[in-house]
């Protein structure tokens, strides 16, 4: 019987943690009323904190049922209902996602101190969470947990003019091509001049990263020692009397695999979503 109970508890947790799966996902911009639960309107990200509170009380019921600490089971069950009700009133547009009766039924089942009954009653409650997560979690994270790329302005180190981030990425790409195309054609002097411009623009990204990232180590993950090594290597080849193409391209690869790829893998998906909301149609 014991292994089944454990499995049951695991499934009950999974019901809350995993959203209802859907192959077609619509990423809809969250309602404006949610903004008051995130900085700057709020001191803390209150909405996600509220999610954590409910999740903790839900988990607290099962942890204590397993430990047969029934006093704490009751406390968590009561608190869960209290927080669930509170959450249901926070964003009027999302009121329908909540089923307070399901939360109360779960609490009542938990208070019988029968783990099987609690597990069974958790399904209805878990589905309300899962439905909202499936439909809104991605957009809430995209809007409130990720600063917007499209509002970032970058000072182009070459022109010293402030330009939009997207435009800046275009200028990096162009200067990169200035290096690779000239090198491929054996125009090493031109490639060296283009490299100075490309390096300057690439390194400017450290300042761009710092607009959001406060920690040096995070910035260095994108523009760090690999970039320094790659640029030093390319520069060495272009300053040599006979540049070694193998070494040159190896460094281009290093820069691409670390700097470009790291950033694009982490940030681009979210940036695409924000772009849909922020760019005029």
């Amino acid at each position: 019987m014991k292994p089944f109970r454990v499995l049951f508890i695991a499934l009950a947790f999974a019901g809350l943690a995993v959203p209802i799966q859907a192959k077609d996902m619509v990423v809809k911009e969250p309602p404006e009323s949610l903004s008051k639960y995130y900085p700057p309107q709020s001191k803390q990200p209150k909405w996600i904190q509220q999610m954590h509170k409910m999740s903790t009380h839900f988990g607290g019921v099962f942890v204590n049922l397993k430990e047969k600490d029934f006093e704490n089971v009751d406390k968590h069950a009561n608190k869960l209902v209290e927080e669930y009700k509170k959450t249901s009133e926070m964003v009027p547009e999302w009121e329908d996602y909540f089923d307070v009766k399901a939360a109360e039924e779960f609490a009542a089942a938990a208070k019988t101190h029968d783990i099987a009954k609690a597990g069974k009653a958790s399904g209805g409650l878990g589905r309300t969470c899962g439905k909202c997560h499936a439909e809104n979690e991605v957009s809430v994270w995209a809007k409130f947990h990720w600063p917007s790329f499209h509002k970032i302005k970058v000072t182009d180190p070459i022109s010293e003019k402030e330009i939009e981030f997207d435009e800046y990425m275009g200028s990096i790409s162009s200067s990169f091509k200035g290096v690779t195309v000239n090198f491929s054609e054996g125009q090493y002097g031109r490639a060296a001049k283009a490299l100075k411009i490309f390096k300057s623009r690439f390194m400017e990204l450290k300042s761009t990263c710092s607009k959001c990232h406060a920690m040096q180590d995070v910035k260095r993950f994108y523009v760090g020692s690999d970039a320094d090594t790659a640029f030093a290597g390319m520069s060495r080849e272009l300053n040599a009397d006979k540049p070694n193409p193998g070494k040159f391209w190896k460094n281009i690869g290093l820069l691409g695999k670390t700097g470009c790829k790291h950033c694009h893998l982490v940030h681009r998906t979210n940036s695409f979503i924000q772009e849909m909301w922020e760019k005029p149609e």
């Binding site: 900085p39 509002k151 607009k211 959001c212 406060a214």
Partner: peptide
């Protein structure tokens, strides 16, 4: 105001 995206960046507050 500009650098903090209209004061929305948590790290600045």
């Amino acid at each position: 105001i500009e650098a903090s995206e209209n004061r929305s960046k948590e790290k600045c507050l």
